[in-house]
């Protein structure tokens, strides 16, 4: 494969993945409000266009044209760096997710994955662990005690739940014997999905994913009754928009990651019956996105159903329940693998 071709299709793929993440994040805001409306027996936004379809554009436009306020006592550079880092880390994780089976076009095999690195899962963890910086830097640079408290809450929550998240994935990695996301997905061919072998691991993972994205019932960082607005109290205009938007991108990417690692990614039952490779690839992508949307729906469903946790309950759940449970899960998995190999 020539270098030009390689660079060309990678560029197109990167642009597409980036654009689609932004688009889905944008329309996830509308979906969230519509769903909230449905669950609370009201209509939700319906003024801008049919069924409120232009609402995200209006919101985005409003945020861009609002007055931009940078507090005088803040650290200017870090104040701007905070939301930039939040967006940057949110967009980076999607690089290792395989979006579908290989396409065959013009005599070339085109993998629908930006980078198949052999440490894909660890890369995701690296990026997730860096996500804390956006929140912390933003909260501290605002020079406001409510922001600082919100930032400290958010980051201690994220650090605590990262541990249980990593431990719950180790059981999956023990079974797959690989750190490459592509290989993990390929092993779940057909309906041989990991969730059937690791139900406990999946449960722990999804709880931690809620906590990592700062979504309800773990949205304590922006607990308005106690903290005014959380770590983004001092932010206005599009900088605030970036923080809020990063949350939706994170939600999309973690849904994609869960779908890939636990729910078989682009695999679906009876996929061997389809002989045409390109048709299979397109169907695979469609199935993968259906799974992603299902998880995004679960995120929203939980948000509008469960009340917020208290802070000590949150820490207790993370450290005293989820981490021991995931260690037990690792031991059980290890035992099962040993029995199988006897």
């Amino acid at each position: 494969m020539s270098t030009i071709f390689f660079l060309g299709y990678k560029t197109i793929l990167v642009t597409m993945v980036w654009g689609i993440s932004l688009l889905i994040a944008m329309y996830a805001t509308l979906m969230e409000r519509k769903l909230a409306g449905f669950l609370q027996d009201r209509l939700g936004p319906d003024r801008a266009g049919p069924f409120g379809i232009f609402q995200p554009l209006m919101d985005g436009g409003k945020l861009f044209f609002k007055e931009e306020i940078i507090p005088n006592d803040s650290n200017k550079f870090l104040f701007i760096l905070g939301p930039s880092l939040a967006m940057f880390t949110a967009c980076m994780t999607s690089a290792v997710i395989p979006w579908g089976p290989d396409l065959n076009l013009f005599g070339h095999t085109i993998p629908l994955q930006i980078a198949d690195i052999n440490i894909g899962v660890l890369f995701v963890f690296g990026v997730v662990s860096l996500g804390v910086y956006g929140v912390m830097i933003g909260g501290w640079a605002s020079n406001n005690k409510y922001s600082l408290l919100g930032a400290v809450r958010a980051s201690s929550q994220m650090i605590s739940y990262e541990l249980a998240m990593g431990l719950s994935l180790i059981a999956v990695l023990m079974m797959s014997q690989s750190l490459s996301v592509k290989e993990i997905v390929q092993q779940q061919h057909g309906i041989n999905w990991n969730v059937f072998y690791q139900p406990l691991g999946f449960l722990i993972f999804i709880i931690c994913a809620f906590a990592e994205t700062n979504r309800a019932p773990f949205d304590l960082p922006e607990c308005e009754a106690e903290l005014v607005g959380g770590y983004h109290t001092e932010y206005s205009s599009m900088k605030l928009g970036f923080y809020l938007f990063a949350e939706y991108i994170n939600m999309f990417v973690s849904s994609a990651f869960m779908a890939a690692v636990f729910f078989g990614g682009y695999n679906f039952p009876f996929m061997d019956k389809i002989a045409n490779g390109n048709l299979l690839a397109i169907l695979g992508v469609a199935v993968f996105f259906a799974k992603i949307f299902f998880f995004i729906f679960v995120f929203m469903w939980v948000r509008w159903t469960l009340p917020r946790f208290r802070y000590d309950q949150l820490m207790k759940l993370g450290w005293q329940i989820l981490i021991p449970l995931s260690v037990i899960n690792i031991l059980l998995t290890g035992g099962a693998i040993m029995l199988k190999n006897l």
């Binding site: 440490i119 963890f125 690296g126 997730v128 662990s129 804390v132 910086y133 912390m136 501290w140 650090i159």
Partner: peptide, 26 residues
């Protein structure tokens, strides 16, 4: 050494330095 690369980022940049930042901010 890809493994060392990513572990160095997770452990040092992602965990230890966050705790440092925590302490200094507080």
């Amino acid at each position: 050494a890809q493994f060392l690369f990513v572990v160095n980022i997770i452990v040092y940049a992602g965990a230890i330095m966050v705790l440092f930042l925590f302490t200094i901010m507080m």
